[in-house]
């Protein structure tokens, strides 16, 4: 066996393993997520797309099918890649290229508010608000955005530390602020023929407050 054979064999293994990792299989399945607004909206649109083909499933039925297919795919993926998980973990390599797979019609807008000595709250930062640009450069930086993006569906373990970090930044830069509130504002995006406005604000959630120590 020549060196060329060894190299070709090694590349075959690498391409097979990483190729399987790249296969468009669901990484996980979560039935609860299929009840979130963006998922329900997606399933409703799928339901409409199926109607001209004579198929009229209920949204719940579509959600059940999606969950079963995703569960099967996730199990298949997990089992197939199990022998290589340690390698992927140590090298941090892999294949997962879902880029804007599901455009979100219910995106979240990060809002940071500060309470002044008078007791009134002022808006310090809100995404794309020209009048509230506190720490904008940092808050739109991709890694920081990644942290709060991940918390926009529901508050995860990183949400409280993120809020504390935002608050510490505010307290350092704004001596007149004695409390900070960080939250998301739900936005609903409409297509031109669906609504008179493109974006409609639909209330806030995941609000957390921090007080000056």
């Amino acid at each position: 066996m020549s060196w060329e054979d060894v190299r070709a064999a090694l590349l075959l293994v690498v391409i097979a393993v990483y190729g399987f990792a790249a296969a468009p299989l669901a990484h996980s399945a979560n039935r609860e997520k299929l009840s979130l607004p963006f998922a329900t909206d997606e399933l409703t649109r799928l339901q409409s797309a199926l109607a001209p083909m004579g198929l009229h499933p209920e949204v719940e039925e579509l959600a059940d099918v999606a969950y079963r297919v995703s569960s099967f795919q996730a199990d298949l993926r997990r089992t197939g890649l199990a022998p290589f998980q340690d390698f992927f973990r140590i090298t941090g390599t892999g294949q997962a290229w879902g880029l804007f797979t599901y455009p979100d019609r219910f995106p979240a807008r990060l809002v940071v508010e500060g309470r002044q000595a008078s007791g009134g709250w002022i808006r310090l930062y809100a995404s794309l608000d020209p009048d509230a640009t506190f720490n904008e450069e940092k808050l739109v930086y991709r890694r920081i955005r990644g942290v709060y993006d991940a918390n926009s569906e529901r508050a995860r373990a990183t949400w409280d530390p993120f809020v504390s970090w935002v608050a510490s930044e505010v307290f350092r830069a704004e001596p007149g602020v004695d409390a900070v509130r960080v939250s998301f504002q739900q936005i609903h995006t409409y297509e031109p023929w669906e609504h008179a406005e493109v974006l409609v604000e639909e209330g806030g959630y995941s609000a957390r407050e921090r007080h000056r120590p």
Binding site: G19, A22, L46, A49, Q95, W97, G98, T101
Partner: peptide, 15 residues
Amino acid sequence: VMYFTAGIQKTAVAW
């Protein structure tokens, strides 16, 4: 692989 799998995973009706 990156481009192609990104393409085939765009299963949302909006695409």
